[in-house]
């Protein structure tokens, strides 16, 4: 499936700063970050802890608002939106994958994946069908009725990925998605990301692991709230670097 190439970038971040605290204890978590991410790209945002990458992730995920600067997601200026509109943005445009999986406890895999569609107001039968498809896409078709605590870490993270893609979002935003996984599960999850990217999904991974970054087409490095390097490892149109030699 060829990626849909649009002239409009998914993300435009202009001169964003984020300042925590006031006066003497003021902390500049982000200090003038500008970033444009094209549709279909696979971007790794890297940095040590304290570099501001989590803050950037929160802003990109519409979980937090920048102190100054603009953030345009899919042509929509996120800074001007109210609470309900932000909830809709998170629901439809962003698929989150967290380090600690963040599945709803005591709720089956299927119900977890259905949840974003439920908040979007989709009918039960239809969202059930779509949730099934999404779970099948991450190889968990046989684990629909398992509770999170009955699944391994890797499986939980795959459920989380299924939940992230089920709404067909503009981008998948993953925050240290392999931070809590063993090497085998890490490989599985990264391969899933690569495949989703091949299918044309925009993927942004926040990480401090070089291994994760090697899967990305583009690596952006942050230090002290600023972008210090931005290198492209593979073209936007095409396969992610580690999938290039593998036939689809």
């Amino acid at each position: 499936m060829p990626p849909v190439v649009s002239t409009r970038p998914v993300i435009v971040v202009r001169d964003v700063t984020k300042v925590y605290g006031m006066g003497d204890v003021e902390v500049r978590a982000l200090d003038g970050v500008s970033l444009v991410i094209e549709r279909g790209d696979h971007v790794a945002i890297m940095g040590a802890s304290g570099s501001g990458k989590s803050t950037l992730m929160n802003i990109l995920g519409a979980l937090d608002a920048p102190t100054t600067g603009r953030y345009v997601l899919d042509g929509e200026d996120v800074g001007t939106l109210g609470d309900a509109a932000l909830a809709d943005i998170r629901n439809r445009r962003i698929g989150f994958v967290f380090q600690s999986f963040n599945l709803i406890p005591r709720t089956t895999a299927l119900a977890n994946v259905e949840l974003p569609l439920a908040y979007a107001g989709m009918k039960r039968a239809r969202r059930r069908e779509r949730a099934r498809t999404a779970l099948a896409a991450v190889g968990l078709a046989d684990r629909l009725d398992h509770l999170p605590n009955e699944l391994s870490g890797g499986q939980q993270q795959r459920v989380a990925i299924a939940r992230a893609i089920v709404t067909n979002p503009s981008m998948i935003l993953a925050d240290e998605p392999t931070g809590a996984l063993d090497s085998r599960s890490t490989a599985e999850v990264l391969t899933i990301f690569d495949r989703l990217n091949v299918q044309g999904r925009t993927i942004i991974v926040i990480t401090h692991e070089e291994e994760v970054a090697r899967h990305a087409k583009r690596v952006v490095r942050l230090r002290d709230g600023r972008i210090v390097s931005d290198e492209r490892q593979a073209p936007v149109e095409g396969r992610p670097p580690l999938l290039m030699e593998v036939p689809a």
Binding site: A87, P116, Y119
Partner: peptide, 8 residues
């Protein structure tokens, strides 16, 4: 989590 995935 619910808010992150779109609960108002």
């Amino acid at each position: 989590i619910r808010k992150a995935i779109g609960a108002r």
